[in-house]
């Protein structure tokens, strides 16, 4: 065993998890604690500002971003169960505050402390899921690498590593895994006809992969894909990776 050391992490659940998928947040806390992380939850958190920033409302986004900076300024590690919100905080805050040296300095400081959930588990904690940690169950899981996690946060291997190490999970290849699912925030409602074509391909890839479960690190993408799976009553479970690592069998 390595030296006992306590890693403290502050959880930024993201507004979508807080308001629509609280059970994902619960799984995140449980897995982090199981990995030996001391978890706290900065009260009063809401949205990081990403939806506004992505729609061009930079001024409004700054209000939320500044609010988030205030909440997270002194936290050693900030863990976000989302590549999309994580990218906002790590990458885009720097652009957002490009004209304000003081805020940008704080954003830069945060960017070095903010981690996506699986990235944190692998790169910071060195967590290896082990038998006994979680209930055994057999499931075949396809992993969808969400775009901002992959290309903005550049988390390319952590989720797969955790899934591969998790007992009872067999990971299957998702064809064209790196293709966007078509969510893109407001894109999905501004251009539903295009979004739905992308979604259909993603759902077809998942159902054709032989997996019984589709997972990702972002509830935005999963709400989108899961919404179609639910509509079409397909025999596919759609779960956040934290839920799978938590042993939730749904």
């Amino acid at each position: 065993m390595s030296q006992p050391r306590t890693i403290r992490a502050s959880l930024f659940t993201t507004c979508i998890v807080d308001q629509l998928y609280p059970e994902v947040g619960v799984s995140v806390v449980r897995v982090l604690r199981r990995a030996g992380v001391e978890v706290d939850y900065p009260e009063g958190q809401t949205c990081c500002g990403q939806p506004l920033y992505n729609s061009g409302f930079t001024g409004e986004a700054r209000k939320l971003a500044e609010r988030t900076l205030n909440l997270l300024d002194d936290r050693a590690f900030v863990v976000v169960p989302s590549g999309s919100c994580g990218a906002m905080m790590r990458v885009f805050y720097l652009d957002l505050f490009a004209d304000d040296p003081e805020l940008q300095a704080r954003a830069r400081d945060l960017s070095q402390r903010v981690y996506e959930f699986t990235e944190f588990l692998v790169d910071v904690v060195g967590y290896e899921p082990a038998t006994g940690d979680q209930p055994e169950r057999g499931c075949r899981v396809a992993y969808h690498p969400s775009c901002h996690l992959l290309r903005e946060m550049e988390v390319t291997g952590a989720p797969q590593r955790l899934l591969d190490a998790a007992p009872g999970i067999e990971r299957v290849d998702l064809p064209d895994a790196e293709q966007c699912c078509g969510f893109g925030g407001t894109f999905a409602i501004k251009y539903p006809h295009i979004s739905e074509e992308m979604l259909a391909d993603k759902v077809a890839a998942a159902t054709g992969s032989g997996a019984d479960t589709l997972t990702a690190c972002d509830m935005g993408c999963l709400m989108h894909i899961g919404g179609a799976v639910s509509r079409q009553k397909l025999p596919l479970r759609v779960r956040h990776i934290a839920q799978l690592l938590d042993g939730e069998s749904g």
């Binding site: 998928y21 609280p22 009260e43 999905a188 409602i189 539903p192 739905e196 919404g227 179609a228 639910s230």
Partner: peptide, 17 residues
Amino acid sequence: RWTRARDLPIPPPRSFA
């Protein structure tokens, strides 16, 4: 425009907070 192809979750009774 969302629900034409996807179901939408109903907000749960309690937030994560």
